[in-house]
Design a protein around this nucleic acid. Structure first.
Lengths: 128, 128
DNA sequence: TTGGCTGCAAAAGTTTTGCATAGCG
DNA sequence: CGCTATGCAAAACTTTTGCAGCCAA
């Protein structure tokens, strides 16, 4: 993605990075990854932009792993697997949440259901 | 539950409290709730026992809401709804995660799947 | 000049931990 | 006496925020 202008260079880089990876990085990870390319990046900027992207619906949180929030630039609904050992978060694209569950959730909760997260936990291939 | 002994009075009280409520309290909430009954309870003890219970599988975490981890003394698999506005976490007992999903997750991830969490997000009845 | 984005550092908030003490077995 | 549970307070970490500077329009 070509930067819109120097003014948005960091913002664009953060979003581009989130969209480029399926690693579900934390703020710190994003910061570390972009730091070499953008030496004057600050962690506050990463957090501020993450908050903005979340609010705009450009990214989603996949929850906290070991006390650190992890983000996903892929906002297409999909299922996650989190390794209890190494903390890796992977996508399970083959699975889909049945529509019945969504409608049943809305019915039982009486709420305005916006979205849902299905996450499996266990020990990944390499940690087993 | 009758306390095993004075030695475990606080530990037992924390677990009993978690099992007595469906509010999915945070450590701070547990602390505040028990403080009147046990004035010399400390927050560190709550955290230490929560960590122990989690490790022993006596309780589960339902994830972080607004940066605060919430716990559930009901370890029976069930679905949750989290209100984006007020942060309330409620149980949806009527829903069940199809077995196909569990087996499909294990197959696709190649991992040792231990458990899974399905959480719906939106605005609850009272916040709508 | 105005408004938005950012670096930097301080602050806020949550969770963990070290140390000393007390109680159980 | 040794081991565990705990209070208390400090520490560690993650995330947010205030302020000043800078750049674009």
């Amino acid at each position: 993605m070509e930067p819109r202008s120097k003014h948005f260079r960091k913002r664009d880089a953060i979003l581009a990075y989130l969209r480029s990876t399926d690693q579900h990085p934390s703020a710190e990870t994003i910061y570390a990854a972009l730091k070499t390319e953008i030496p004057d990046l600050s962690l506050g900027t990463v957090y501020r932009n993450i908050a903005l992207f979340k609010q705009q619906g450009l990214i989603v949180s996949v929850g906290s792993v070991n006390g650190v929030e992890r983000y996903d630039g892929n906002i297409d609904p999909h299922v996650h697997f989190v390794c209890t050992d190494c903390g890796t978060v992977t996508d399970l694209h083959g699975l889909q949440i049945p529509d019945e569950l969504n409608t049943a959730a809305a019915r039982e909760s009486g709420a305005e259901v916006d979205h849902c997260h299905l996450t499996f936990h266990g020990r990944c291939r390499t940690c087993v």
